[in-house]
Design a protein around this nucleic acid. Sequence first.
DNA 1: TTTCTGACA
DNA 2: TGTCAGAA
Length: 145
Amino acid sequence: MAELNSDEPFIDTNKLIFGIGQVQQITGVSGRQLRYWESQNYISPIDQKKGVSRQYSLHTLFLIFHINRFIQQGFTLQAAVDHAKEFDAQIPALRQFLKKQLKGVEISDDQTVIDFGYFNAQRTKRVYGVIDRNGQTFFEIRDVK
DNA sequence: TTTCTGACA
DNA sequence: TGTCAGAA
């Protein structure tokens, strides 16, 4: 099974900057909305100076995207922001856990098996996440040979 | 051409 | 929130 070990990201996501026009194209949120949300302190561009073109970080782009998603689901702006920020706060934990536990992935014709490492301290069982041919997902615990 | 701020038939 | 004006 292939080993996954990329500690260094190949792209510094902090260097991915987007202008307001790009943000509009990508997220579908209008410039008017972006400026209004900013005035309400829901979002904030990178080190904003007066009168200069706004620049948004990738992180803010994601936040904007999610706020808009919740709005389209019928939430009020305020509620959408709350949901988006809550989700936003969960991402680091998800990334950390996945990075720590993901040991490998094996893709075959009928299914994909994700290796999540040992199930117990005795190292007699291992946990696998399975995606079958129908897209169904489930866990599987197998004895270590 | 794009973005900025302010204003509202 | 959209849209228009006037400026940068």
